[in-house]
Design a protein around this nucleic acid. Structure first.
Lengths: 196, 196, 196, 196
DNA sequence: GATGAATGAGAATTCATTCAT
DNA sequence: CATGAATGAATTCTCATTCAT
């Protein structure tokens, strides 16, 4: 019988707690403006303790991506193998929307710290993934507007995550609205194919 | 014979040059990662010279907004006074697209440094402007999806500015494609009004 | 044979050493004219080390007060509880004179950096203490001259600490002479009470 | 017809105005904490203008002493020539008290910025004057206590200038009270001479 | 009698990182 | 698994001062 079910969960989970607090602060105040001191203080450990668990500051961020972006990664992997049908595309969006919702803070962080992401290893990787996803959605020889539509669909899903924060109602409802619009865009882009 | 042909061209333009270099670096490397030392070095002046022209680092950024975002400001002002017709909305997008193109680096900067913008005075102001613009485009009692469409239109215009950079072809063509998609979205949102 | 006889004696005493050197320099050259660089250099540590031990420059000074002015504080506490007899007053002066001698450099510092003290937290606190001490010595309804005498007694004790430095003889003898004059003044002020 | 009788008295008096504002700020916030920028701003001129009138910051302060401390200087000159009678001493105190009142801000400044004064030329000079004044008051072979009394008298007059500020009543009355106490002290010191 | 533009030196402070214990 | 103590490099900013105009 484990000793502390809901008591202060200290112990093997320090790594986890660092990640939690780090993500919270990174998302809240930005990567550069969050210092390791702050993270350590909020956790009531010393800065040196952080270095026991992670090699560098960038590493902490990296670990967040590894842990939180994996579902997204798998989704993209899966998507790349599907046939390029409309149904597939729609399903991809549906799943991507959920993936985003599941790691909201992380994606919000990315959205708001793009300049920072650019020279972080995790940033490069993420950008590559996005492009692969885009490649699944769009038709290479489609007119520019349709390409934009696909891009727009993706981007709106990202941005919607937090930009609609101070707009209105129930988050889940909003998510579905965004998904609907994105699906519309991709559908339209897909349909244009035939009329060419 | 004029005294300094190519000698130190230290005329009244230093302030301008600071702004130029600052915007360049801010956009390129991000606000926090750009130090005043770098700006000064690139200009071959001392850091103190920057402080002769601007009170703080934030002030430099602020001045960029004042100078570059004014056309946008005036556009929004104008937009707020127009009747809420479809044509108006389309015209607004058209003009906004141009305004964005005219201050591309600045808007790219904003897009990529949102976390930073959040606690800058200029950030607050900009956000407020965006919301006003959104208010002109959307119908307050429209269904959520239509609201999202309007938001999406705006956001895609911003993001498109630079996110399409590493995608393809002629910038002007891309801009028009983005504008077209945005217009579609707003048009669709507007038209839904009747079918309610 | 212990490992570092005269090697870097970098034990737990750094904080102390900072305080020592800081007080020395603050008293010698004034608070503003003493830079953290100087303190660090004289200690052969880096500036950052100072910040490990103290949050700010003002904090270093604050800590000196906390450590050195405590005896004085306790004395004032004690004084406030005594009956307002002449004997008490004399005893207070006697003790205060000793307290001053025990933290000579600190009081000299205060005396010579009043302008600085004014906007330091420690300054406010000290002033409040002085007024409380004065309140114990003087009779609230005594004539103005007697109030001045009490104030003068106190002030002379402070100033004497260092102003007599370049005057003459044995410090301890001087201290006693100052105390005697101060006692005279307070005694006179107290005696006047009856003749009113 | 003169153009500006009571209008902004600009013109030949800038030097004066600099001195006024400088003294005001020096006394208010301390010498080091007062920057030339502040002085210039309050005068609505540029820093460079200050340098037209004074060679350095220290020079501004120096000029204040030259202008304001001259009466004191003359007094001391005069005092040094008088016979060493009790009446003389009393007269000296009386005059000195008035001299102090006439340049209150300057003396307050000195009192509160002793650490600064120490390495200013004006500081050295002033200290020398004080010692000469002290030499006129005290008897060289008097017991230590009596020497202290003289010193105390002088010092109380200085300190009283502003330390009694937050104590009570009418300034002029306070000045007289201080003078009275100082006179008492010197008288006592003088009288002891006989009883030796 | 002043300004506009700049500089060189230096201030306080913060940060990511290291390492012996 | 962690801390205490420290560092080196950087950062933003301020100051007294200079000088051509």
């Amino acid at each position: 019988m484990s000793s502390n079910a809901d008591a202060r969960p200290r112990r093997g989970n320090t790594r986890q707690r660092i990640q939690d607090v780090a993500l919270e602060l990174f998302a809240e105040r930005g990567y550069e403006k969050t210092s390791l001191r702050e993270i350590a203080e909020r956790l009531e450990v010393t800065k040196a303790a952080l270095y026991y668990h992670f090699k560098t500051k960038e590493d902490i961020l990296g670990s967040l991506f590894e842990d939180l972006a994996r579902p997204t990664d798998e989704l993209i992997e899966w998507a790349a193998e599907q046939p390029r049908t409309l149904e597939t595309k729609q399903e991809i969006l549906r799943r991507y929307s959920e993936a985003l919702a599941g790691a909201e803070r992380l994606f919000r962080f990315m959205q708001e710290n793009q300049a920072t992401m650019r020279d972080l290893q995790a940033g490069e990787e993420f950008k590559a993934r996005m492009l692969r996803l885009l490649d699944v959605l769009r038709e290479p020889d489609a007119p520019l507007t349709d390409q934009v539509r696909c891009f727009s669909a993706l981007f709106s899903m990202h941005a919607g995550l937090f930009a609609l924060k101070d707009v209105e109602g129930d988050p889940e409802e909003k998510r579905r609205a965004i998904l609907e619009v994105a699906t519309d865009l991709v559908t339209q882009a897909h349909s244009d194919r035939e009329s060419r």
